[in-house]
Every structure is written in structure tokens, then in C-alpha cells.
Simulated assay, not measured.
Amino acid sequence: MHDDKRPLRDYAARHFGWQCSDDGRVATITLNRPEKKNPLTFESYAELRDLFRALVYASDVRCVVIQGAGGNFCSGGDVFEIIEPLTRMAAPQLLQFTRMTGDLVKAIKRAPQPVVAAIDGICAGAGAMVALAADLRLGTPRAKTAYLFTRVGLAGADMGACGLLPRVIGQGRATELLMSGRSMSAEEGAAWGFFNALHAPEALLPAAQAMARQLADGPWFAHTITKTMLNQEWAMGIEEMIESEAQAQALCMLTQDFKRAFDAFAAKQAPRFEGH
């Protein structure tokens, strides 16, 4: 079969920062408009969507960290570059836009790489959805996460929020946040399972990159299967779940990582995973 994978370590981002570790395994995306708390634009939405779609074919990147610059994660869609133009669009253009924003969430979910969101300060609107789409979330005590769509007269049903948020924090809590538009504090987010852990602001990125490195150096192919099954099993009954996982695990047992792990255990050594 033709190998259609290619390295993305040297990808030249136009609307956000992109930096990879020396071996290319850990990539860090930085939303870098700190003067406005890193809002998204039409262009950054589209480029992020296209990048996460391209990550399906990356030969080097095994884990992605996404953060914001200047002490905030992302304030959502830029008020004057997105919100104001939307008020003048007709229905077909509005639907094209809302489908594009949802495509970003789908692309993050479909990318095989685990995605770790490092969330400091403001995390609102579309930014909160990018964080929710990530597989793991680390925050700081000053993180404030808000699904504030109702604050601009819209439904809380945006970019998959009504499906994703209840699965992470529970139906009742999600209903309150999506209808009130209030901020979820860092303490609430940690207690409710939104955050995997909280760190001091200066320790946030190192912690996120350390987690990403651990995942990238682990049984990477197996991690991609775990992510796939976590996403697929939402709509399955118990029979389908068990059978799907039986097939997935049997596939992982064919990898050299599985044999390496056994050989290392037998030799009383730490396994060295290669991801295939």
C-alpha cells in the first residue's frame, strides 16, 4: 500500500503558533493574539480545522498541546471579525459558518493524536469548545470557562456543546452552564471532571508538555485505538462495545509494541515503545 504519511514538524502556521519537539513527536499550538485574549477568526478556524485533518496523515506528531498566549486560553470568536459580520449574513452563509466551526471539533476528535489543552485565564465560547474537544485538559486556579452563547442571544447548542459537555461534567451541570452562560470556576471544573489537574500558571505548559511526552513515548498506536474507541462507543450498546473492543485489542496484540512490552517485563526492564 502506498504510504501517504508525511512529517508535519516543519508546518508553517499562518494564524497561530506551531512548534514541535526536536523529534517531532510533541507539537504545541499557541493561539497568539494575546491583546484580545486570543480570539478566533474565520481564517484561524479554517486553518485549525485543516491542520487537525492533516494530522491524520502525520508521520511524526504523536501528541498535540494547545494553549493560549499571554495568560488566557481563548475568548471565543472575535467580536468584530466574526460576530459583527455574522449579523449581516443570510441563512446559507450562516449555516456554512456554523458547519465550519463544528468541523473543527470533529477534526480534533478524529485526529489520532491525543490532544492536551493547557487552559489559563479566559476560556470562553468557541475557545471553551476547543478545550472540550481536547482529550485531556489541564488548567490553572485562575481559569474561567464559559459557554456564553446565550449571552449573545444564541442557543447553548453550538459546535456540539449539548452532546459533549454533559458527557464530561453531567447533564444537570451542563444544562446550567449552557443556559446561564456563567463561568465555571477552576475549582468547579476540577471537581466536575472537566480538568484532569490544576497547576500554577508558570507550571501549566511544562505539565501539559510532560503529559504529551509521556503519551508520545508510550504505545502510540494503542493510544490512537483508545481515542477512537472512546469516541465510537458513545452510540453503542453493550454488545457492540464488547465486540468492538475485542477486535481493537486483537489488532493491538499484533503490534511490535505488545511483544516489546512482554520482552521487557520478562527481562525486568522498562519497555521502549515505537508506536507500531
Results as ranks from 00 to 15, higher is better:
122 I>C: 11
122 I>M: 11
122 I>Y: 02
124 A>M: 10
124 A>T: 05
124 A>D: 10
125 G>Y: 14
125 G>T: 06
126 A>N: 13
127 G>L: 11
128 A>H: 03
129 M>V: 03
129 M>A: 10
129 M>P: 04
129 M>L: 09
131 A>K: 04
131 A>Y: 03
131 A>P: 11
132 L>M: 13
132 L>W: 05
132 L>P: 05
133 A>P: 09
134 A>R: 02
134 A>T: 09
135 D>P: 12
136 L>N: 02
136 L>H: 11
137 R>D: 03
138 L>N: 00
139 G>A: 08
140 T>H: 04
140 T>M: 10
141 P>S: 07
141 P>R: 10
141 P>N: 04
141 P>T: 14
143 A>S: 15
143 A>N: 09
144 K>H: 08
144 K>I: 06
144 K>P: 03
144 K>V: 08
144 K>L: 11
145 T>S: 07
145 T>V: 15
145 T>P: 05
145 T>Y: 05
146 A>F: 09
148 L>S: 13
148 L>C: 15
149 F>A: 15
149 F>V: 08
149 F>D: 13
150 T>Y: 12
150 T>N: 07
150 T>L: 05
151 R>T: 14
151 R>N: 06
151 R>H: 14
152 V>S: 10
152 V>N: 08
153 G>Y: 14
153 G>K: 07
153 G>H: 04
154 L>N: 15
155 A>K: 13
157 A>K: 11
157 A>E: 03
158 D>E: 12
158 D>F: 11
159 M>P: 01
159 M>I: 01
159 M>S: 01
160 G>R: 03
160 G>C: 03
160 G>S: 03
161 A>E: 07
161 A>W: 00
161 A>R: 03
162 C>N: 13
162 C>Q: 14
162 C>R: 13
162 C>Y: 05
164 L>A: 12
165 L>G: 00
165 L>E: 05
167 R>H: 12
169 I>M: 06
170 G>R: 11
171 Q>F: 02
171 Q>W: 04
171 Q>V: 08
171 Q>L: 08
172 G>V: 02
172 G>I: 01
172 G>Q: 13
172 G>S: 15
173 R>F: 09
174 A>C: 09
174 A>G: 02
175 T>E: 14
175 T>Q: 13
177 L>Y: 10
177 L>I: 01
178 L>R: 09
178 L>I: 05
178 L>Y: 01
178 L>D: 08
179 M>K: 14
179 M>E: 13
179 M>A: 08
179 M>N: 09
179 M>S: 13
180 S>T: 15
182 R>V: 07
182 R>F: 10
184 M>V: 05
184 M>C: 02
184 M>L: 14
